[in-house]
Amino acid sequence: MRLSTGFVRTNGIRLHVAQQGAGDPVVFCHGFPHTWYIWHRQMAAVAAAGYRAIAPDMRGYGRSDAPEDPAAYTNVEAGADLLGLLDEIGAERAVFVGLDFGAALLWELARRAPERIRALIVLNNPYAPRTTRKPSELWAMAARRHFLHLDYFQRPGPADAELADRPRDFLARLYYALSADYDYFDIWRFPPEGNGYLDVLPTAPPLPWPWLAKTEFDTLAAEFVRTGFTGGLNWYRAIDRNWESSAGLPATVATPTFFLYGARDLDMAGFSGRDPLTTLRTHVTDLRAVTRIARAGHLVQLERTDQVNGLLLAHLGALTRTERSAATARRATP
């Protein structure tokens, strides 16, 4: 089944979008530092099962527009991109799949526009309630003790230049550090003073890896060689604005949700609170499944492709069966 790419005008920008298959839409949302291509294995599986797989380069990435102002990278703006994408393809609703920043965006979109979301399938990044202080303030406190990329990325300039100077090296080191093959928190032994991200990341083994082909890495890296990383870094620089604009949103998510995570994912282990699964179950009121995937880290869809694809198809099938049963019950009610 052929994959196609093109452009959609939405919310004042041009969004580059990959599509494969036909049927009910399933929209895949990536994070940092990825492009739509991080989902290409999942798109093929979902399309073969009779769905329309759609994966945009999120704003600031790949061939999508990259506004200069970090204020343009809030969840409000990125969410409007997705709603405009649905309008463009003539879809009232879609199933959304998200990882990393894509997951955080979907948790917020589900509270802003629940009528447009048929279901969420979230990988690795659980729902997190709004903090009492700005995220940047919390990160700055942690960065007094050790290097923390979240704080380092807040300041335009140094990180942009460092990563753009060695894009392939950075991507290889980070993808490896995020995998189940490395303990990401070893990075925290480095002090913040005098270190950039490449100074603290491990040296990556030569490609290919058991879970990533060199041709796949080359495809991902080629976009960042061309664009640099500022568009992606601006998502970090918009997080305080997300915090400010989310003050009046509901505290819970009522959308049907399926959650899966790598057993060695850094977000579950150290960036999502002391008990992320209890928080998830407390705040997501229609949580239908939680699955722990052994021997997987942050890029779980690449590290354990067959298992993730099987879960995606199982969750999509379960969602359809539940909807059909509910429709049958409504018709039978006098």
Rank of each mutant, 00 (worst) to 15 (best):
L287V: 10
G21H: 07
F217N: 02
S245D: 14
T227G: 07
G228P: 03
Q154S: 06
R274H: 13
Y236F: 15
L106P: 02
I121N: 02
Q42S: 14
L178V: 03
P25Q: 09
P206I: 06
D240E: 10
G12H: 11
F28W: 07
W209R: 07
Q42C: 12
L120N: 05
P202N: 09
A22T: 14
D218K: 00
P158T: 06
A91C: 12
L313K: 10
D186M: 08
L319D: 09
A221R: 02
N234K: 14
Q154F: 03
E244R: 11
G228T: 01
E68G: 13
I38M: 03
T5F: 06
Y152P: 00
A55I: 06
R133S: 13
V225H: 01
G79Q: 06
F96M: 11
T5L: 07
F7P: 05
T131I: 04
L109E: 09
P33C: 08
A44Q: 14
A94K: 01
A289D: 15
P70M: 08
G194C: 07
T328C: 07
R304V: 13
H283A: 12
A49F: 07
L316D: 09
S136I: 04
R274E: 15
F258R: 07
L312E: 02
R145V: 08
G270V: 13
A296P: 02
R321P: 03
L120M: 11
T131M: 13
G102W: 02
P210C: 05
R14H: 12
T132K: 10
V97Q: 07
D69E: 13
S64W: 03
T328S: 13
L150N: 11
R331D: 12
A91F: 05
Y61C: 11
W188A: 14
L312G: 02
D265F: 05
G262T: 03
N124L: 04
L316Y: 04
F190V: 02
P70R: 04
A164D: 04
L313Q: 12
V200C: 00
V290F: 04
R304N: 10
D306V: 06
S245M: 13
P256H: 05
L198D: 03
R274Y: 12
T305D: 08
G6I: 09
P114Y: 12
H34T: 06
G317Y: 08
A238N: 08
V300L: 11
L82G: 00
A94N: 05
A269L: 15
N242A: 05
P126F: 14
T291F: 09
H146L: 02
R168E: 15
A128M: 15
V200G: 01
L249C: 11
G297N: 04
N242D: 15
R330E: 14
L83V: 15
G196V: 03
I187V: 15
E193W: 06
R93M: 05
V253L: 11
T252V: 14
